[in-house]
Design a protein around this nucleic acid. Sequence first.
DNA 1: AGTATTCATTTCGTATACAAACTAATTTAA
DNA 2: TTAAATTAGTTTGTATACGAAATGAATACT
Lengths: 141, 141
Amino acid sequence: MNTEETKYEDCIIFLLAKAYQKAHGNFKKRLTAYGLTPIQHLILEALWLEDGQSAGDIGKKLVLDGATLSGVLDRLAAGDWIKKEPDPDDKRIIRIFLTKKVRGLRPKLSEERNQANDEIMRRLSLEEKVLLKRLLRDIQG
Amino acid sequence: MNTEETKYEDCIIFLLAKAYQKAHGNFKKRLTAYGLTPIQHLILEALWLEDGQSAGDIGKKLVLDGATLSGVLDRLAAGDWIKKEPDPDDKRIIRIFLTKKVRGLRPKLSEERNQANDEIMRRLSLEEKVLLKRLLRDIQG
DNA sequence: AGTATTCATTTCGTATACAAACTAATTTAA
DNA sequence: TTAAATTAGTTTGTATACGAAATGAATACT
């Protein structure tokens, strides 16, 4: 049904990769001043919404592979952003808590993220922004 | 101007990351049967359009960092997909040529990619597909 | 010519990503 | 109640990704 040759510039996988690459790179640069990476920041965001989540909870919400998450959490703990504590009722589970180092940083980091978002979509109208988000969500199902 | 707290689920960086993750994972699975990765395939595509391009040419077209490209080309050469030959006129430049191993594979790989594209966007109408591609291109500038 | 600069690519270090194998703890079932 | 299956998390191995430094080659400048 769809056998014509499509150049890679028209391939949705390529377009998503490059758009993500651009967005990620932009945010990454903004975060270097804080010593954080975009994914590390994402985990802090999740913990701001609910502190003490298990590693598995976080992975499920952020759609992060366990193997990936394990390393990210290690680096966050090494940087004293979080503390890992085994759940007293089920010692398989590790609960993640924010440290005091993170206090007061939330507004600044949110502002950076909002600016990054704005810059990435600066060429789009408000309708287009809303639509793009909707389409990306539809893709993930 | 944009100081309200946005949950990460509404963050364009997050949405792009997850949509890309899904698309990439889908295509990656399809390609394992061939022993290729999505990026390796992308480079073959670029060479099908024009064989003998330099590493720099390929990097520019595919928006790939030189450091990244170097490793990918090494692995492609190790798998006998490509051959690296220094340009006779400028020995700084390395030209990349497809090997005979790739012959006849193009239609199959294109079909896999088209199927991956279709599956990723299966929930979208034709108009939405066109629009999504346009918006992603707009983001890249 | 000889030196400085620029250019193409590689190397190194760090950080995602994910499959697969592994450990340890809990639950299920026989 | 003990063996089997499941679950949570880590480890290992491979593949992007990219900044920064290094290498080697070509060009520019004096």
